[in-house]
């Protein structure tokens, strides 16, 4: 492992720069989350989720982000192992030295944040990929075009079977009628733009279907569809246990961030009487505003809805 052989300062600069990248990601994620607060039945939030799930730039950045988390975690573990090895026999009296707030607990706060991140992935991120299947009661967001396409596919299949002679003309026509009846409600709603719980406000493109309804016309491929993150999110945060875990993780994240930001500047040698105070305020501000911004969503769902 050549990573092990890197100089201590190089390793620290690696973890710091990767951490700095993660710091850029947080305000963006927070901004997207806050879209849920808009009183529009989740239109903005669904659109944002759809954008984040389909845009190719986002997809590239997702890979970069995951690699960053991986590098951050691997280097952190490596540094911690080296640090523990540097003092094989410990002190009988625990240290009473003054230290920078949060600095002694970075690996522990880091581990808690990582554990939370995994829970968070299971609840949201993996659902997007269909690795984790959304709850039965969750609804899915499907484009009308897709439903149309599925109907057309099935019709073509029937026509082929008719040509081959596996089905008689009467049988085929019967099945085609059945199909049209089955698909009618969804297509009609979409085409007429009639307001309904199955259709989002902009009416044209997206319809929200229950898992059963979705299974009806796409079969077992339903996991390929985006679940409706708006209802999913509200349902999760309505659970006080989940919300409290979420809020606890945010407090821990704040502690991690406060030392992290101070640390990044120090590690890159940016320590100067002129702006040391500014760095301290920047770190405190960021470590306060970001967790607060994230905390608004569960608090809003728990108390205002």
């Amino acid at each position: 492992m050549s990573l092990v052989k890197l100089a201590s300062i190089t390793k620290k600069m690696t973890i710091a720069s990767v951490g700095a990248f993660l710091l850029v990601f947080l305000p963006m994620h927070m901004g997207l989350n806050l879209c849920i607060l808009r009183e529009d039945g989740g239109e903005w939030y669904r659109n944002v989720c759809h954008f984040m799930g389909t845009n190719w730039i986002v997809k590239i950045m997702e890979v970069v982000l995951m690699l960053s988390v991986l590098v951050h975690v691997v280097v952190a573990i490596l540094l911690t192992i080296e640090n523990k090895k540097a003092r094989p026999v410990g002190y009988a009296v625990p240290s009473k030295s003054k230290t920078h707030a949060g600095s002694k607990w970075m690996i522990y706060t880091g581990v808690i944040v990582l554990v939370f991140l995994i829970i968070h992935f299971i609840n949201f991120y993996f659902v997007k990929f269909g690795i984790v299947v959304a709850d039965d009661s969750d609804t899915y967001t499907v484009e009308v075009e897709d439903i149309q396409k599925h109907l057309n596919d099935k019709v073509t299949e029937l026509q082929e079977q008719m040509m081959n002679g596996t089905l008689s003309q009467e049988q085929a026509q019967e099945q085609m009628m059945a199909l049209q009846l089955e698909y009618m409600p969804f297509l009609q709603i979409a085409q007429t733009g009639q307001p309904s719980d199955k259709i989002s406000k902009d009416g044209e493109e997206l319809i929200n279907l229950s898992k059963e309804e979705l299974k009806q016309f796409v079969g077992e491929d339903f996991t390929e569809y985006e679940p409706d993150f708006y209802t999913m999110c509200k349902k999760l945060f309505a659970n006080p246990t989940y919300s409290i875990i979420y809020l606890f993780a945010l407090v821990i994240l704040g502690i991690h961030l406060f030392h992290a930001i101070n640390s990044i500047f120090q590690t890159f040698g940016l320590n100067h009487r002129k702006y040391n105070k500014a760095i301290e305020y920047l770190a405190a501000g960021y470590a306060l505003i970001i967790p607060l911004g994230f905390a608004i969503v569960p608090l809003f769902v728990m108390f205002c809805k």
Partner: peptide, 8 residues
Amino acid sequence: GNCTNTYA
């Protein structure tokens, strides 16, 4: 060990 900017 490595520095973790603890400043002890």
